[in-house]
Design a protein around this nucleic acid. Structure first.
Ligand SMILES: [Mn+2]
Ligand SMILES: [Mn+2]
Ligand SMILES: [Zn+2]
Ligand SMILES: [Zn+2]
Lengths: 142, 142
DNA sequence: TGGTGGTCAACAATGATTGTTGATAACATG
DNA sequence: CATGTTATCAACAATCATTGTTGACCACCA
């Protein structure tokens, strides 16, 4: 994801208007590595702008996703997660207990995309999801 | 997944009651390779038993999942998919257009589960999801 | 400085899934 | 087979994340 200032320009140049709410969301997301839910983004934004609505958060996340500035992840935790790290290909570790998501910056050369003709399926992307228990949850219970 | 008859015994031996509705769902799921949604299972069951309710389908799917006879898949298509193929480790191809799910019976030795200590994360499982376009959708549009 | 059209936030609706409940059916026991 | 106990059925309502609607408001261009 680009910097909040660059996103301001990008929104203007793509015919979108720039509002304080949107800029607030830009700065909340910038550098965030927690893969927040829409609720979490809203909570963080509310700290700076108490009246911002959850709908506005959803709208802006949708716009950012459309522009390719963030990725929407459905990792089976019940709610969508948003990832501003779109520049590096990476995979994810998901805690089965608390739902926390961490990046895994490893490459898996084996996971080659098979040619479409051999499968009857044109493959466009491959995601690997590792599920387990995060450090905090492992420490909490025996 | 075991045969409907074996499932009947399994349900009885685990203190669950066997009803015609449940047996109907057993036979609908047995040998199904389409990774159906709860709605799809309900539709197939309704063909044999018009009065069966969607709630009963959810309940039975939940029981089968608890017993390890089926797997519940959340592949980001908005609805859960149910997979009676629990004996072979395999991965999935998901059509971005129609949501169809196909098995991919390949092994990826590269996708080794990293040791927990190096990551601060105890990894239990790894799933690979390939997204793209199925044969039918590729043929339909140019 | 308007005018125009996009955005805001409150409210209501959606769709998948789950909770509740009275009536009904399965199972063990005799 | 009769009988009581307990689980299940299916209709109904509730939940949760997300999306649609709408009137008031604000950003941008001439
Ligand atoms: Mn990430
Ligand atoms: Mn499968
Ligand atoms: Zn955790
Ligand atoms: Zn398709």
């Amino acid at each position: 994801m680009r910097t909040p200032d660059e996103l301001t320009d990008l929104f203007r140049s793509t015919g979108r208007k720039v509002t304080p709410q949107r800029q607030c969301i830009f700065s909340v997301l910038y550098g965030d590595v927690t893969h927040p839910t829409a609720e979490a983004v809203h909570a963080a934004a509310t700290a700076h702008m108490p009246t911002i609505s959850l709908k506005t958060v959803y709208q802006t996340l949708h716009d950012l996703s459309e522009l390719g500035e963030i990725t929407t992840l459905d990792l089976g935790t019940g709610t969508a997660r948003f990832d501003p790290n779109v520049d590096d290909v990476h995979h994810h570790l998901v805690c089965r207990e608390c739902g926390k998501v961490r990046d895994l910056d490893l490459e898996f050369p084996d996971v080659r995309i098979p040619a479409g003709s051999e499968l009857g399926f044109e493959v466009g992307s491959a995601e690997i999801v590792f599920r387990g228990r995060c450090h905090e949850c492992a420490g909490a219970t025996s």
